[in-house]
Computed example of a mutant assay.
Amino acid sequence: MESISLAVNGRTDIGQVREENEDSIHCYSDSETDFAYVVVADGMGGYSGGAVASRITVDTLKEHLDELVNGTFLACSPQQQQLMLRACLLDSCAIANQKILEAKSLRPQFSHMGTTLVAAVIWQNFLIVAHVGDSRAYLWNEYGLQRLTRDHSVVQEMIDRGQLTPEQAQTSQVRNHITRALGVENQVDVTINSWNLTENALLLLCSDGLTEYLDDSTIERILATHRPALECVYRFIDDANQCGGRDNISAGIIEYCNRAQSAAALSDDAITLRPANREDTTQRKVHR
């Protein structure tokens, strides 16, 4: 896999209205192996609780992901490595959930805190995404933009039932009501999806402070035209702030480059993303 190149960039911004940034983000790319990840968490709860919950979550995932690629991992087969990545994300999310609950029990002023999460990991040509809540992951390549996550939210459920159009959801009074979050129940349902990457791509992770203002077509246009690609994170945040910036805004990008594929012509039936697994459940409403 020596032909693969990975680069990351990320930024979080307080926005134009909020007094505190309750978002947290961490980006990482290993210079020695084909390994990179981005984690974005959007906290809720006020009184600094949201910031605590999002930081606990990002720090917990960082700790576990940083320890993953070791001698044992490298000695495993690709299939085993993929299972280990999935287990690492699920385990670290469960641990973060418990840490938030413990913090809430010790500090009553944080009783309403919780956080969304979206995390993406690339190992060689394998991409795995975990998410809870309405922070999103997108993938852009020469075929266009693909949303890799489905919001765990009231409006998404209404869209799925045909009660709202995506356009109506953008202005719905319940658009910020999520149905899943870390730190709310003893167990959290994490949606995990995975794919095999077959060509150059940009992976965007963001909090809803970005998607509140920029629709998918705008996100696609920026990813397709703004270069250097990793600097799109600054453009996204600037645009969201110019549109109002009522929420904290976070954006992280992984740039995936397969030099061998770049040099070779793809066949007509090449698959851009090949789903490897999928799971989805629902949970009670959480008002943010």
Rank of each mutant, 00 (worst) to 15 (best):
E2Y: 10
E2C: 03
S3G: 00
I4L: 15
I4M: 13
A7K: 03
D13M: 00
G15V: 05
G15S: 03
R18P: 04
H26T: 01
Y28R: 00
Y28Q: 01
Y28H: 01
S31T: 10
E32N: 15
E32V: 13
E32D: 14
T33I: 03
D34P: 15
F35E: 09
V38L: 04
V39A: 06
D42R: 13
D42L: 12
M44L: 01
G46F: 02
A53P: 02
S54H: 01
I56H: 00
T57H: 03
V58Y: 05
D59W: 01
T60E: 09
E63A: 07
L68E: 09
T72E: 12
F73I: 04
L74Q: 05
C76E: 15
Q80N: 08
Q80D: 11
A87E: 09
L89K: 01
L89P: 02
D91H: 15
D91F: 14
S92M: 14
C93Q: 02
A94N: 08
A96C: 07
K99M: 11
E102P: 07
E102H: 06
E102N: 04
A103W: 11
K104M: 07
S105H: 10
Q109G: 08
Q109W: 12
G114D: 06
L117V: 06
V118L: 12
A119V: 01
A120F: 07
A120T: 00
I122R: 02
N125W: 01
N125Q: 03
F126W: 08
I128V: 07
H131Q: 06
G133L: 06
S135R: 10
A137Q: 07
Y138H: 07
Y138T: 02
L139R: 00
W140V: 03
W140F: 07
E142Y: 09
Y143P: 04
G144F: 00
T149K: 04
M158K: 13
I159T: 02
T165S: 13
P166A: 05
P166L: 01
Q170Y: 11
Q173M: 12
R175N: 04
N176H: 09
H177T: 00
G183P: 06
E185T: 08
E185N: 13
T191P: 03
I192K: 13
T198A: 12
A201I: 02
L202Q: 09
L202K: 12
L202W: 11
D208H: 14
E212M: 12
L214P: 06
D215G: 00
S217D: 06
S217K: 07
T218W: 09
T218Q: 06
R221Q: 14
A224H: 01
A224L: 11
T225D: 11
T225K: 10
R227P: 00
P228I: 00
D238C: 10
C243Q: 06
N248K: 14
I249F: 09
S250T: 04
G252V: 03
C257S: 12
C257M: 11
Q261A: 01
S262I: 14
A264F: 06
D268V: 03
I271K: 10
T272Y: 15
L273K: 04
N277T: 14
E279G: 15
K285C: 15
K285Q: 15
K285V: 15
R288M: 15
